[in-house]
Design a binder for these strands. Structure first.
Length: 172
DNA sequence: AGAGGGATCCCA
DNA sequence: GGGATCCCTCTC
């Protein structure tokens, strides 16, 4: 969720990937650097990074302070604030279900950028996580867009949900 | 399928 | 400082 001025932007997370300690595909693999510092912070904090010259990606730290690990939030099913999300995406023709599909698109739709790097997602007044009790059927697959540890089944998605990103073969 | 895009970081 | 690499996106 994100409070954007007076407007509340709400999305249900439908796709994540795990990046474990000592995971060759993780940014934290080679140790702490200025970029990945937030990954080594306390759990349930944001790690926001810039990639491919165009996209921000949101991760949620998952291990105690000092351990570099996080879950990449790859997609949300928009729940509320879709018009504002469309404006943030800058693409008027995008369907609701497509607004936060993919990690870069998700950050654009929610206005998430470097300002949130290191934010505590349990107490931050603007960006936070919450549960609504919904249970989703979980599918598991290999992670997307990586070359190292590519066989590890560490991607988790909501089965049958249109807002899930990636090749169709990976989200049956 | 393929190009664009810019930061990051390792190893000189 | 160079250059491979990158947890991607859009348009073809």
């Amino acid at each position: 969720m994100r409070a954007d001025g007076d407007e509340l932007l709400v999305g249900r997370i439908v796709e994540t990937e795990a990046y474990f300690p000592h995971d060759p595909a993780s940014h934290a693999f080679r140790g702490r650097t200025p970029r990945n510092g937030a990954m080594f912070g306390p759990p349930l904090h944001a790690y926001v990074y810039f990639i491919y010259g165009a996209n921000w990606c949101l991760n949620v730290t998952s291990e105690p302070d000092g351990v570099g690990a996080a879950a990449l939030v790859r997609a949300c099913e928009p729940v509320r604030g879709m018009e504002r999300m469309r404006a943030l995406r800058g693409r008027p023709e995008v369907k609701d279900w497509d607004l936060a599909r993919g990690p870069g698109n998700l950050c654009r739709a929610f206005g998430i950028g470097p300002a949130f790097d290191g934010a505590d997602l349990t107490t931050d007044p603007v960006l936070w996580l919450a549960g609504d009790g919904t249970e989703l059927p979980v599918g598991i697959s290999t992670r997307i867009g990586i070359t190292k540890a590519a066989h590890e089944p560490w991607r988790f998605y909501a089965r049958g949900n249109r807002s899930v990103s990636g090749p169709r073969a990976l989200s049956p």
